[in-house]
Amino acid sequence: KTEWPELVGKSVEEAKKVILQDKPEAQIIVLPVGTIVTMEYRIDRVRLFVDKLDNIAQVPRVG
């Protein structure tokens, strides 16, 4: 699995749990929505963009 659209609106902790069940090797990085990030693709990275309430604001994707 490479993306988790069902996690939008969920808490960071809930999202981490689901992603690590699907992809145990994932390196999860939590960032505020709108953060500028590098464009290199990494198969072991999932970025979680969160709103001010620490809920997932964008679809988490591998990369």
Rank of each mutant, 00 (worst) to 15 (best):
L7C: 05
R45Y: 15
G34N: 14
V59A: 07
D54Y: 09
L7R: 02
V50Y: 06
E13I: 08
Q27M: 07
D51Q: 01
E6D: 12
E13L: 10
E13K: 10
K1D: 05
V62I: 13
A15E: 01
D51R: 00
R42Q: 15
P32S: 07
V50T: 10
L7H: 01
V33K: 08
L20D: 04
I43F: 11
K1C: 06
I29Y: 08
T35K: 12
K52G: 14
Q21S: 11
N55G: 04
V37K: 12
I56P: 02
R42Y: 08
D51K: 00
F49I: 11
E6W: 04
K17C: 08
T35G: 12
I29N: 08
F49K: 00
P32I: 04
E40Q: 06
R47A: 14
L31A: 14
E40S: 08
K10W: 08
T38M: 08
K10S: 09
D22F: 05
P60K: 00
R61H: 10
R42P: 15
R45C: 15
V8I: 10
I29H: 09
E13D: 10
L7T: 04
E14K: 07
W4A: 01
I36W: 07
Q21M: 11
D44W: 04
R45L: 15
R42T: 14
E40Y: 04
E25G: 13
A15S: 05
E14P: 03
P24N: 01
N55Q: 11
K52V: 09
A26T: 10
R61V: 12
D54Q: 15
V59C: 10
D51P: 00
S11T: 10
I19N: 03
D44Y: 06
I43S: 14
A15I: 00
R61K: 08
V18S: 09
V30L: 05
K17H: 06
I28L: 10
I43D: 15
L53H: 14
V12G: 02
P5W: 01
A57H: 04
T35L: 05
P60W: 02
I28K: 00
R45Q: 15
G9P: 01
S11K: 13
R47Q: 14
E14F: 13
K52F: 09
